[in-house]
């Protein structure tokens, strides 16, 4: 039988954008899970996932391969390489059997891009009302916020580096909004 396993096509496939002080590429293909739990179950999940799920609001933990982003008091976004999707699912569900939790695969429901450059924060500011100065939105911080009319997850991964995630069907809008913002900054 035909196997279409290698025929994935993300919404930002093969895009790239670069303008003075700011460039954008799609984030590497990832697996993503929305994980919900409370109390000691979270510690069990941390051990199984290999990354301590942060308890502090808007903070992240990142090994470089896997990351856990705080999304709410009982909610985390777990990110890993797409090749580890089945592994992560198994690692977590094995230890959490019987414990109150929810692990939902949103790998394909979300899409992400990486912004970099001296004007990246200014371009984001065209549609995001948060103060993105590094003294306020520091490296390693994440939050759910808006970019113009889209909801995004924003994660500062470096002084001039941002991870922007949104719903798959809004990815084109977010990408083109940031492109326009980048062009306006260089007009």
């Amino acid at each position: 039988m035909v196997d279409l396993g290698d025929r994935t096509l993300g919404p930002l496939f093969s895009r790239s954008f670069s303008v003075g002080g700011f460039s954008m590429v799609p984030a590497p293909e990832s697996c993503r899970f929305t994980f919900r739990a409370r109390g000691a179950v979270v510690d069990t999940a941390s051990q199984a996932f290999g990354v301590a799920l942060p308890r502090q609001a808007c903070s992240t933990a990142n090994t470089g391969v896997r990351a856990a982003l705080w999304m709410g008091p009982d909610e985390w976004l777990l990110i890993g390489p797409r090749s580890e999707k089945v592994l992560i699912e198994r690692q977590l569900t094995e230890v959490l059997a019987g414990a109150a939790h929810s692990l939902v695969d949103v790998s394909h429901g979300e899409a992400a891009l990486i912004m970099s450059g001296t004007k990246a924060a200014v371009a984001l500011a065209a549609g995001c009302p948060l103060d993105l100065h590094s003294s306020v939105f520091a490296i390693g911080m994440c939050t759910r916020t808006v970019l113009a009319k889209a909801q995004i997850v924003l994660w500062r991964t470096g002084p001039l580096l941002f991870y922007v995630q949104t719903s798959r069907s809004l990815a084109d809008y977010v990408w083109r909004f940031l492109e326009q913002a980048g062009m306006d900054l260089n007009a």
Binding site: S102, D105, G109
Partner: peptide
Amino acid sequence: LDVWLTSTTDQWAVIAVQGPEARTLLAPL
């Protein structure tokens, strides 16, 4: 209640295959 809600609208592509030949078509795939 121990219950959590996650939107999966964008996670799934939904392909409706409808009609008397639907089973014959899908079964071998």
